[in-house]
Design a binder for these strands. Structure first.
Lengths: 145, 145
DNA sequence: ATACATGCAAAACATTTGCATAAGA
DNA sequence: TCTTATGCAAATGTTTTGCATGTAT
């Protein structure tokens, strides 16, 4: 029993409610997202899925990632190094730290972010519903090189 | 005399120092960046340049934008809607408030942002060089509708 | 004169789409 | 059965590259 089994079941239920079919490919793709702590690209998901499902096509991975994004089960992070990256574990927007050298992505915990959002709301009068916050820099490992 | 004349001269000097040649195309592209307050894509720069230099090729615009990015005179903002956007005016990135209803964009002044950046650096060990921060929500005018 | 930049076309990318076939419900 | 998903291939759109020609220095 994987720690994300519960999450998997909930997502499958959500798919059924939308009259989407539960195919082996979709389950496999979903499992890759839930099992990876980092922020994979479509190509990386594809490579992972093909270990167990060698017949899976890249187009299907693209279509499924789109579907999961649409139902809010996967978050599109943005373009890093020419390809889109995704987060299957925290589908709500959160800040990222992106290393411009090795392209790795970290999820920092920023206690001040709610206060910053509040400041943006009060100074502008906006009702803020979402955000995208990416810091770019050099990660500790690359600083030593 | 344009307000960015001084900046233009400095950039041209920088180019000469790097043994780069000052061509009409490069000057024209640079002027487009300095004269536009928004964040143009390569295609938009290309369209603008071709008004005065109809023979300019898209490849040259791409090469020049790359050059200007390399020497730090233009900032690559990131990919919006499938294409890269650039900022030739502001050396430092700044946050945006984007209304999802009327698409208007506001530049808020966020006094907490430096503190948030500092928190991100200390908690991660990253040396942060840049960032992108976009808040999405409903502006005051659209909330009344 | 001689590097270097330009412009054209073709290539290299990630991503999307159309359609016949396969398969979940 | 009957609709939806898959997989292939072709198309799309952006960005890059090779090379002959043009041009700034």
């Amino acid at each position: 029993m994987q720690p994300w089994q519960d999450r998997l079941d909930k997502t499958l239920t959500k798919l059924r409610e939308r009259n989407c079919r539960i195919t082996p490919q979709r389950v496999a793709i979903l499992k890759v997202f839930l099992g990876s702590a980092d922020h994979p690209s479509v190509e990386q998901v594809y490579a992972q899925v093909r270990i167990n499902f060698p017949t899976t096509s890249l187009a299907t991975v693209y279509k499924t990632v789109h579907l999961l994004k649409d139902i809010g089960e996967v978050l599109e992070i943005g373009t890093v190094d020419g390809r889109n990256r995704y987060d299957g574990n925290r589908p709500c927007p959160h800040p990222h730290l992106i290393c411009t050298e090795c392209k790795s992505i970290i999820d920092p915990k920023l206690s001040l972010l709610p206060k910053l959002t509040a400041e943006a709301e009060t100074t502008s009068g906006f009702r803020i519903t979402s955000h995208q916050l990416d810091f770019y820099g050099i990660c500790p490992a690359c600083q030593k090189k």
